[in-house]
Protein backbone atom coordinates (compact mmCIF):
# COMPACT_ATOMS: atom_id res chain seq x y z
CA UNK A 1 0.00 0.00 0.00
CA UNK A 2 1.46 3.33 -1.06
CA UNK A 3 1.53 6.18 1.43
CA UNK A 4 2.33 9.87 1.30
CA UNK A 5 2.76 12.30 4.17
CA UNK A 6 0.65 15.45 4.05
CA UNK A 7 2.04 18.80 5.22
CA UNK A 8 1.06 18.06 8.84
CA UNK A 9 2.99 14.80 8.73
CA UNK A 10 -0.17 12.64 8.59
CA UNK A 11 0.14 9.56 6.39
CA UNK A 12 -2.32 9.15 3.55
CA UNK A 13 -2.63 5.78 1.88
CA UNK A 14 -3.63 5.03 -1.66
CA UNK A 15 -6.00 2.07 -1.75
CA UNK A 16 -7.78 0.29 -4.57
CA UNK A 17 -11.06 -1.46 -4.10
CA UNK A 18 -14.15 -2.57 -5.98
CA UNK A 19 -17.33 -0.83 -4.84
CA UNK A 20 -20.58 -2.08 -6.38
CA UNK A 21 -18.60 -3.37 -9.34
CA UNK A 22 -16.61 -0.18 -9.91
CA UNK A 23 -12.80 -0.27 -9.64
CA UNK A 24 -11.77 2.74 -7.57
CA UNK A 25 -8.52 4.16 -6.29
CA UNK A 26 -8.78 6.56 -3.37
CA UNK A 27 -6.59 8.20 -0.75
CA UNK A 28 -7.45 7.71 2.92
CA UNK A 29 -5.90 8.31 6.33
CA UNK A 30 -4.89 5.39 8.47
CA UNK A 31 -7.80 6.06 10.83
CA UNK A 32 -10.47 6.62 8.16
CA UNK A 33 -13.40 4.29 8.74
CA UNK A 34 -14.89 2.39 5.83
CA UNK A 35 -18.30 3.97 6.61
CA UNK A 36 -16.79 7.45 6.24
CA UNK A 37 -14.92 6.54 3.05
CA UNK A 38 -18.22 5.35 1.57
CA UNK A 39 -20.37 8.21 2.81
CA UNK A 40 -18.06 11.19 2.78
CA UNK A 41 -15.59 10.47 -0.02
CA UNK A 42 -17.65 8.29 -2.36
CA UNK A 43 -21.06 9.90 -1.58
CA UNK A 44 -22.64 6.48 -1.07
CA UNK A 45 -24.93 7.73 1.69
CA UNK A 46 -27.29 4.77 1.52
CA UNK A 47 -24.94 3.27 4.10
CA UNK A 48 -26.11 4.91 7.34
CA UNK A 49 -24.24 5.92 10.45
CA UNK A 50 -26.21 5.29 13.64
CA UNK A 51 -23.74 4.77 16.45
CA UNK A 52 -20.12 4.45 15.22
CA UNK A 53 -19.70 1.71 17.83
CA UNK A 54 -20.81 -1.39 16.00
CA UNK A 55 -24.03 -1.58 18.02
CA UNK A 56 -26.80 -0.74 15.58
CA UNK A 57 -25.91 -2.32 12.24
CA UNK A 58 -27.21 0.56 10.10
CA UNK A 59 -23.79 0.84 8.42
CA UNK A 60 -23.79 -2.83 7.33
CA UNK A 61 -22.15 -3.50 3.93
CA UNK A 62 -20.89 -6.64 2.25
CA UNK A 63 -17.12 -7.07 2.36
CA UNK A 64 -16.22 -9.91 0.00
CA UNK A 65 -19.80 -11.11 0.44
CA UNK A 66 -19.77 -11.05 4.23
CA UNK A 67 -21.99 -8.63 6.18
CA UNK A 68 -19.85 -6.28 8.28
CA UNK A 69 -20.43 -3.08 10.24
CA UNK A 70 -18.50 -0.58 8.15
CA UNK A 71 -17.90 1.59 11.22
CA UNK A 72 -15.72 -1.22 12.62
CA UNK A 73 -13.63 -1.58 9.47
CA UNK A 74 -10.74 0.73 8.61
CA UNK A 75 -10.76 1.94 5.03
CA UNK A 76 -7.22 0.62 4.56
CA UNK A 77 -8.45 -2.87 5.46
CA UNK A 78 -10.69 -2.73 2.39
CA UNK A 79 -7.71 -2.40 0.06
CA UNK A 80 -7.95 -4.94 -2.74
CA UNK A 81 -11.37 -6.14 -1.61
CA UNK A 82 -14.88 -6.06 -2.96
CA UNK A 83 -17.66 -4.06 -1.32
CA UNK A 84 -21.40 -4.04 -1.94
CA UNK A 85 -23.45 -1.20 -0.51
CA UNK A 86 -27.22 -0.77 -0.76
CA UNK A 87 -26.69 1.25 -3.94
CA UNK A 88 -25.26 -1.87 -5.54
CA UNK A 89 -28.04 -4.30 -4.65
CA UNK A 90 -30.47 -3.53 -7.48
CA UNK A 91 -29.46 -4.35 -11.07
CA UNK A 92 -29.97 -0.87 -12.55
CA UNK A 93 -33.78 -0.41 -12.51
CA UNK A 94 -34.54 -3.98 -11.46
CA UNK A 95 -34.84 -4.35 -7.72
CA UNK A 96 -33.41 -7.35 -5.91
CA UNK A 97 -36.03 -9.83 -4.65
CA UNK A 98 -35.21 -8.76 -1.09
CA UNK A 99 -35.91 -5.13 -1.94
CA UNK A 100 -39.19 -6.12 -3.61
CA UNK A 101 -40.11 -8.22 -0.64
CA UNK A 102 -39.39 -5.43 1.87
CA UNK A 103 -41.77 -3.19 -0.13
CA UNK A 104 -44.49 -5.84 -0.52
CA UNK A 105 -44.42 -6.83 3.15
CA UNK A 106 -44.51 -3.29 4.59
CA UNK A 107 -41.16 -3.98 6.21
CA UNK A 108 -40.04 -0.35 6.03
CA UNK A 109 -40.96 2.47 8.32
CA UNK A 110 -38.38 5.22 8.87
CA UNK A 111 -35.98 3.36 6.59
CA UNK A 112 -32.83 4.16 8.53
CA UNK A 113 -32.08 0.51 9.32
CA UNK A 114 -33.33 -0.75 5.95
CA UNK A 115 -30.03 -0.66 4.03
CA UNK A 116 -28.26 -2.63 6.73
CA UNK A 117 -31.15 -5.06 7.13
CA UNK A 118 -31.24 -5.82 3.42
CA UNK A 119 -27.49 -6.38 3.26
CA UNK A 120 -27.47 -8.66 6.32
CA UNK A 121 -30.33 -10.60 4.73
CA UNK A 122 -28.53 -10.69 1.39
CA UNK A 123 -25.44 -12.21 3.01
CA UNK A 124 -27.64 -14.80 4.70
CA UNK A 125 -29.56 -15.81 1.57
CA UNK A 126 -26.40 -16.07 -0.50
CA UNK A 127 -24.97 -18.55 1.99
CA UNK A 128 -28.24 -20.18 3.00
CA UNK A 129 -31.01 -19.77 0.39
CA UNK A 130 -33.71 -21.41 2.52
CA UNK A 131 -33.20 -20.28 6.10
CA UNK A 132 -35.48 -21.04 9.04
CA UNK A 133 -37.12 -18.17 10.91
CA UNK A 134 -34.56 -18.53 13.70
CA UNK A 135 -31.72 -18.33 11.18
CA UNK A 136 -33.25 -15.15 9.77
CA UNK A 137 -33.63 -13.63 13.23
CA UNK A 138 -30.04 -14.57 14.09
CA UNK A 139 -28.73 -13.05 10.86
CA UNK A 140 -30.34 -9.68 11.63
CA UNK A 141 -29.81 -9.76 15.40
CA UNK A 142 -27.04 -7.19 14.96
CA UNK A 143 -29.32 -4.81 13.04
CA UNK A 144 -31.45 -2.75 15.37
CA UNK A 145 -34.79 -1.40 14.21
CA UNK A 146 -36.77 0.93 16.44
CA UNK A 147 -39.95 1.06 14.33
CA UNK A 148 -41.15 -2.34 13.20
CA UNK A 149 -40.65 -4.85 16.00
CA UNK A 150 -38.92 -6.82 13.20
CA UNK A 151 -42.24 -8.55 12.43
CA UNK A 152 -42.54 -7.54 8.78
CA UNK A 153 -38.78 -7.57 8.23
CA UNK A 154 -38.57 -11.24 9.18
CA UNK A 155 -41.65 -11.91 7.05
CA UNK A 156 -40.07 -10.09 4.09
CA UNK A 157 -36.81 -12.02 4.29
CA UNK A 158 -38.58 -15.37 4.56
CA UNK A 159 -40.81 -14.44 1.60
CA UNK A 160 -37.77 -13.43 -0.47
CA UNK A 161 -36.15 -16.79 0.33
CA UNK A 162 -39.27 -18.57 -0.94
CA UNK A 163 -39.37 -16.50 -4.14
Amino acid sequence: MQGVKDKNGVMRYVISLIVNGDYLTVTVKGNTLLVDLLRQQLNLTGTKRGCKLGNCGSCTVLLDGKAVSSCLVLAVEADGREITTIEGVAQSEKLDKLQESFIDNAAIQCGYCTSGMILSAKALLTKNPHPTETEVRTAIAGNLCRCTGYVNIVKAILAAAEA
Partner: peptide, 23 residues
Protein backbone atom coordinates in the same frame (compact mmCIF):
# COMPACT_ATOMS: atom_id res chain seq x y z
CA UNK B 1 -56.09 -0.84 1.14
CA UNK B 2 -52.52 -1.82 2.02
CA UNK B 3 -50.85 0.10 -0.79
CA UNK B 4 -47.04 0.12 -0.60
CA UNK B 5 -45.46 3.09 1.13
CA UNK B 6 -44.87 5.96 -1.24
CA UNK B 7 -41.24 6.27 -0.13
CA UNK B 8 -40.42 2.57 -0.05
CA UNK B 9 -38.45 2.42 -3.30
CA UNK B 10 -36.28 5.35 -2.20
CA UNK B 11 -35.67 3.60 1.11
CA UNK B 12 -34.78 0.13 -0.20
CA UNK B 13 -32.33 1.52 -2.75
CA UNK B 14 -30.48 3.91 -0.46
CA UNK B 15 -31.69 6.92 -2.46
CA UNK B 16 -33.60 8.42 0.47
CA UNK B 17 -31.58 11.32 1.85
CA UNK B 18 -31.63 11.99 5.56
CA UNK B 19 -30.22 15.27 6.89
CA UNK B 20 -26.85 13.70 7.69
CA UNK B 21 -26.58 12.49 4.08
CA UNK B 22 -26.81 15.97 2.56
CA UNK B 23 -23.81 17.92 1.36
Amino acid sequence: KSVPKIDSRAKVTGQAKYTGDLK
